[in-house]
Amino acid sequence: MTGTRIRVRFAKHGKVRFTSHRDVARIWERSLRRAAVPVVYSAGFSPRPKIAFGLALPTGYSSDAEYLDAEVDPAWAAGIDNERLVGALTASLPTGMTTLAAAEIASGEPSLQHAVTSCTWRIDAAGADATEASEAVSRAMDAGELLVQRERKGRLTIDDIRPAVHAVEVQANITDGVRLIAELATQPRAVRPAELLASLRPPPGGRAAGERFVPVPPSLLRACRLHQWITTDAGERREPLAVSELGERREPPAVSEASVVGAGVGP
């Protein structure tokens, strides 16, 4: 059966952010069943629910902009109320995961993997100095290339990520560190926040290399995906599913990472 496609936007914060992309897929399979959403199954020897996830979120990062597309029974889809669906899905999800929006999408809509061109990230680099960070960012944005070392299929490569760094803004408003807002391309290969930070060099003659940005220990880096963007042929930028446009009409939780953790998902 060909189902009706629905797209869901969800957030991931707190302890649950340490789950992997595969874990999140399993969590959603169970949650959709708990919410009694009739997802269509593939035919064949080993039927699987037809659910497609967008770009993987690195384990440990949080997000206000995760997406999935699911094929559901058309008869059921015809009768659903988006706002109630959003509530039902959130109720079925573990603490820390929240459904932000849900809506039917056209059958011809390109898949999330193909359509999304860039993401906006909020990156908190604890221990970094705001002045040095601003200088490092300016120089990076002015540079012709930004080289990072990456591992691809077990082999180390040196890639220039400069074309994929669309914008970086420095905000000095977190305790003991620097907050960056960065828009990073996802194609041809997604740039991760850790890779951006690894490419930022301390100013010449400043603090010793390694003490600030290079490299930022993974334990001191916290990032949150704020948006995923689709660039249309006309060059316009839109979200796969804007929170304000469909489904439940509310903004994603405008709380800082620190307050989410502070509120705690446990006792």
């Binding site: 302890k15 992997s20 384990t59 573990p94 001191l220 880096l221 953790v261």
Partner: peptide
């Protein structure tokens, strides 16, 4: 001691096995 454990988790394999938070 979650706040002491949390900074360690990005450095280990399969950190989800230390978070609890299961349904039930």
């Amino acid at each position: 001691m979650w706040h002491q454990l949390e900074p360690l988790l990005p450095q280990v394999s399969k950190p989800a096995r230390y978070i609890g938070a299961e349904d039930g």
